[in-house]
């Protein structure tokens, strides 16, 4: 008993060490979306390019989609734009944009200047769909399967490494089942 007690501090240190070690390298600012496994929330918002067209959640039916949340006020969105262009043009990825808390003129100007990687862009100036999606900071990118169900959410910039290591596996998986 006495001898066991002598080893108790070592034991506690080991347990604490393992627990703390497991936390190293994890980014606490990246949260898993509460919507994973759930369908895209219902919405009814205008098309950025054409204010007469109203888009809704049926937009996500039929093929696997990347939903990219962006705004011209968001510097990191500019950083990822070239990589989104690359995804759309080189890889043929189906990307839908959610123009979040922005205004139409600025957004269209931005697309004119930098190019448009999106198949469709949902115009959400008041951030209602963004709120329902649990968006807490642009850019965010969702993988949505052909049934319109959210598979994954990535918070932060999408680049080639993020695509290959994080999004592509989920994307392929969604395609396999979709």
């Amino acid at each position: 008993m006495k001898r066991f007690l002598l080893f108790l501090p070592l034991l506690i240190a080991l347990v604490v060490g393992v627990v703390l070690f497991a936390g190293i390298g994890k980014d606490p600012t990246k949260l898993e979306s509460a919507l994973v496994g759930k369908p895209v929330p219902e919405f009814s918002l205008k098309d950025l390019h054409n204010a007469d067209v109203v888009l809704d959640q049926s937009l996500f039916r039929g093929q696997v989609t990347l939903l990219n949340v962006w705004g011209t006020w968001c510097p990191a969105c500019k950083d990822e734009h070239d990589d989104l262009m690359w995804l759309a043009e080189e890889k043929g990825v189906n990307i839908i944009g959610l123009n979040y808390k922005d205004n139409r003129e600025d957004a269209l100007l931005w697309l004119d200047r930098l190019g448009d990687p999106y198949r469709k862009i949902i115009y959400d100036p008041r951030g209602t769909l963004g709120f329902d999606l649990g968006v807490y900071g642009a850019p965010e990118t969702f993988v949505i399967d052909a049934e319109g169900v959210v598979r994954y959410r990535h918070v932060g910039v999408v680049n080639k490494a993020v695509w290959e290591q994080t999004l592509l596996p989920v994307f392929n998986d969604a395609q396999g089942n979709g």
């Binding site: 949260l31 898993e32 979306s33 509460a34 919507l35 709120f131 329902d132 999606l133 649990g134 807490y136």
Partner: peptide, 8 residues
């Protein structure tokens, strides 16, 4: 709110 943003 938890349904949108998670248990967090």
């Amino acid at each position: 709110l938890v349904g949108r943003f998670g248990e967090f």
